[in-house]
Design a binder for these strands. Structure first.
Length: 874
DNA sequence: GAACACACGC
DNA sequence: GACGTACGTGTGTTCG
């Protein structure tokens, strides 16, 4: 039997909005109504198991009822903005759930529901209506039940004929008579003054309907009541009419359209994640696991490699399960090409000279997913992999860095090119992760390789369409080889130095811990913000500066302000600083010294950041301390591998502001760089309208923060926080900045417009970032997208430039036969190990290559220094 | 194991 | 006019 569920969308949304606290996700988008609405949907789907379903929404402000009574719903408050912005999200969700939603011009959701429920009921369908509005009770019949929300949102009372009779003692069709007499304040329906629910019901039991009541008005007992009824006859009839649901509204939708199909789990999951409905994710996940069975592909398990298998081009998969691929076990290798589909067990491959020769020959073209991982993990097995010309992961990243995942299975499924199981489905996750029998692995790896072949063609043409193929081919692909070398090569560490620093730090920390406990008068865990907060703000009664959502904030900028209030504060700040050094840097670095090489091998993620920068993990070598002297000493542990070599550090001076000068074409800024001025001093002169010798250090510091803000795309609020000034003052500085650099202002405006028109912004080398939220009605999202539009071309172009310099440097060093090596990249600086006899060469070569990586309207400037350790390269 | 608060670099 | 405010990685704590 068919079962139709009809949901009053607006009513449920309102209920949910007012029943739940004003939740929002981390982006500041309000989600409470969507959340309540969604839990209601899930509950309906689980409990009612409908075959058909439709969510009806009100359309527009005016309805045919306004012709009867123009004050209809007149006193109702305007829908709060926080709710209005959630309504479109609900529609997105419904789409993902494959649930039909519907609205009709000039009619309310009630009318759609009434029309459809009557029609379905006549066909002997079972109908369930879900709403928060009692008016709907008039629709109850043998086949139609109405679930009304109680307090909260998912609690409902279900009304059938019997229930209405018990509760009101009337028939459903008399609900409108009841409304006619008593009115409805929320809809601004007048009714008869003085008549409430009790009186209305009493009258209806006696007379039946409003019409019959007025036919025999004489029989009404009570003089006052009789008068009121007589005076308000028109109101009563009109109110009844207003409360009557239209059962013949012009609904064009077919029942067939309301048939429920399975939700699109991918979309639902994506939406839940975005909305941060983590608890709800669990409720849909199980379904997601029910994946479609894949057809087995033909695989040849290779025991002896023969020449014909090693074709060019080939898609190749070097399967490594550990995220950290340095010296990780290779599960197996697959190769798929025009000749066949092969699974090669690891032992077979690494013991085959034929395979090694093929891998090492640049002329043999290889297509891979995550080339760097394959190169490094084979590298640890003394196999050199060359000739990689296409990396699926990088291509996917360049096409859209914001894609939720650049994992093989996800890319493949997203493009619907070829079905690949997720690694999680094949190997399991967490503790249960294990390698299944060879046949299953072989199938999985061959599918991946086959998908690479298909995706290569698709992604390549997308890259070309986007004018990104050059960026891919000439920059990112060669860069991934360079990064592979850097990772594989690693950086040497003076373990003794670290251990010694660790010891000094530990001593100091335990002394300080005692001192702090003494000052507090009680032992507690200083590392616990919760406990620390209680000590500072409850026990010691220090003034509360800022709160977090879980309690008192104890962050450095808060403690900074409490510095002179109590001597414990200073000590806590120092304790924090030293504790950070000890745990993150001393202990952290010691933990990741590689067993085999004794060096540190980071992994650069080349397909992660939204701007095109790299990131570095296990360990992160892009955030080694430098600002404070105590921390900077950590750099003493980073040393050259070879004797008589030095650490050579070269950094771009103000690369982002130079890029800004170039792309904005601002005359003032361009001249500042052409004349090699100190840019912060120059900005101070312009913002404060003073001459160079009048710039105080405070002015320069302020100007520096303003420049920082421009580069990183922070807001006036961000700037005010940085400088400890009001937002108004911060805004004034920004305005003055734009007055002095009108070209920059013009650029900022035009790039935002460009983002609105195209939906994305690009960097100098055509890196792309999509900004769909640039047209959002939500202020937060839109503003963030606007700042991102301004900032990404600056930061991203800077990333382009240094990446180009890296590729060029490797080329030059190879060509010149230099023994020096590139060790690290830290966003705007390159760290080399330079052997003694090459110092003079590199002093010339490095700045030359870096400064000429691209041609800008302003010169690029590189500073460098070198020394026995990274610390000394300052 | 996930969420949170915090801190480091650019 | 308010809204909540660069990115990324890693640590320790706390809670389910």
């Amino acid at each position: 039997m068919n079962k139709l569920v009809l949901v009053d969308g607006n009513s449920i949304a309102y209920r949910a909005f007012f029943a739940l606290p004003l939740l929002n996700n981390e982006k500041g988008v309000f989600t409470n109504a969507v959340y309540g609405f969604t839990t209601m949907l899930l509950k309906i789907l689980e409990e009612e198991k409908p075959t058909h379903m439709l969510v009806a929404f009100d359309a527009g402000k005016t309805t045919f009822r306004h012709n009867t009574y123009k004050e209809y719903k007149g006193k109702r408050q305007k829908t709060p903005g926080e709710l209005a912005e959630q309504l479109p999200v609900m529609r997105d969700l419904l789409k993902a759930f494959n649930i039909t939603y519907y609205e009709v011009e000039n009619y309310e959701a009630d009318d759609i529901i009434g029309t459809l429920s009557t029609k379905a009921s006549k066909s002997n369908w079972e109908v369930k209506i879900v709403s928060g509005d009692k008016d709907l009770l008039q629709l109850v019949s043998e086949n139609v039940k109405v679930a009304l929300t109680r307090k909260g949102i998912t609690n409902v009372d279900t009304y059938d004929l019997q229930m209405i009779d018990e509760k009101y003692g009337i028939k459903p069709e008399q609900i409108i008579d009841m409304k006619g007499l008593m009115g409805d304040a929320s809809d601004n329906i007048p009714g008869v003054p003085g008549v409430g629910e009790k009186t209305a019901l009493k009258l209806l039991k006696q007379f039946g309907t409003v019409e019959k009541l007025y036919e025999s008005l004489e029989d009404v007992s009570g003089k006052k009541l009789k008068e009121k009824l007589a005076e308000n006859k028109d109101n009563a009839f009109m109110s009844k009419k207003l409360a009557t649901i239209e059962l013949n509204s012009p609904v064009t939708i077919d029942f067939e359209d309301t048939k429920l199909t399975d939700p699109n789990n991918k979309e639902v999951t994506a939406l839940f994640k975005e909305l941060e409905f983590n608890s709800l994710l669990e409720r849909i996940d199980q379904e997601e696991e029910a994946e479609q069975p894949l057809v087995d592909v033909d695989v040849e398990v290779v025991h002896t490699i023969t020449e014909d298998m090693l074709y060019s081009p080939s898609a190749i998969v070097v399967e490594v399960l550990e995220e950290n691929y340095h010296n990780a076990e290779i599960v197996g290798i697959s190769i798929v090409n025009e000749v066949g589909s092969y699974y090669i067990p690891t032992e077979v491959a690494i013991n085959s000279d034929m395979f090694k020769k093929w891998a090492n020959d640049e002329k043999n073209e290889k297509w891979i997913f995550n080339a760097k991982q394959a190169i490094v993990s084979l590298g640890w097995n003394d196999i050199s992999l060359r000739g990689v010309t296409f990396d699926i992961q990088i291509a996917s990243y360049l096409i859209d860095p914001s894609a939720s995942s650049h994992e093989m299975a996800d890319i493949s499924n997203r493009k619907r090119s070829y079905t690949v199981k997720s690694d999680e489905a094949v190997y399991g996750k967490g503790k249960k992760r294990q390698v299944p029998e060879e046949e299953i692995v072989a199938q999985h790896l061959v599918r991946k390789a086959a998908a690479i072949n298909v995706l290569k063609e698709e992604l390549e043409s997308e890259l070309k369409e986007n004018e990104q193929f050059e960026l891919f081919k000439d920059l990112e692909m060669p860069l991934s080889i360079v990064l592979g070398h850097m990772e594989m090569n690693g950086i040497s560490i003076n373990k003794e130095e670290l251990l010694q620093m660790g010891e000094t730090l530990s001593d100091k920390l335990s002394t300080m811990e005692k001192e702090i406990h003494e000052l507090a008068g009680v032992e507690f865990n200083i590392n616990s913000p919760k406990q620390l907060g209680e000590i500072l703000f409850d026990k010691l009664q220090l003034p509360v500066v800022k709160k977090t959502k879980t309690g008192y904030s104890t962050s450095a900028d808060v403690l900074e302000q409490l510095r002179d209030k109590h001597e414990i504060v200073e000590k806590i700040l120092l304790y924090r600083q030293l504790g950070k050094l000890n745990s993150t840097y001393i202990e952290g670095l010691l933990k990741v010294i590689h067993q085999k090489s004794g060096k540190i091998h980071t992994i650069f993620n080349q397909a992660l950041t939204q701007t095109g920068r790299l990131s570095s993990t296990e360990p992160n070598l892009q955030n080694i301390p430098i600002r404070l002297e105590e921390g900077r000493k950590i750099r003493r542990a980073f040393v050259p591998e070879r004797e008589n070599a030095v650490i050579f550090a070269a950094d771009y001076s103000q690369i982002e502001l130079r890029v800004l000068a170039h792309i904005s074409n601002d005359e003032n800024l361009t001249n500042a760089f052409k004349e090699n001025m100190d840019v912060h001093t120059k900005t101070a002169m312009d913002v404060f309208h003073v001459s160079a010798d009048e710039v105080t250090s405070l002015m320069r510091r302020t100007a520096k923060a303003v420049n920082f803000g421009i580069v990183y795309g922070i807001s006036d609020y961000g700037l005010s926080q940085n400088l400890g000034i009001t937002r108004k003052e911060a805004k004034k500085f920004i305005d003055r900045y734009f007055d002095s650099y009108p070209g920059v202002k013009e650029y900022m405006e035009s790039i935002v417009e460009e983002a609105r028109v195209n939906g994305y912004v690009t960097t100098m080398l055509h890196r792309r970032r999509y900004l769909p939220e640039i047209t959002s009605r939500n202020f937060n999202l839109r503003s963030f997208a606007e700042r991102t539009a301004m900032n990404t071309p600056i930061q991203g172009s800077a990333a382009d430039i240094i990446k180009k310099a890296m590729v060029k440097m490797e080329e030059e060093m190879k060509e010149k036969g230099l023994k020096s090596t590139l060790l690290l990249q830290v966003h705007d600086e390159l760290i080399f190990e330079v052997v003694q006899e090459e110092i003079e060469t590199m002093k010339e070569l490095v700045p030359k290559v870096m400064e000429n990586a691209v041609n800008l309207a302003v010169p690029l400037k590189v500073d460098f220094s070198f020394g026995d350790t990274w610390y000394d390269a300052k």
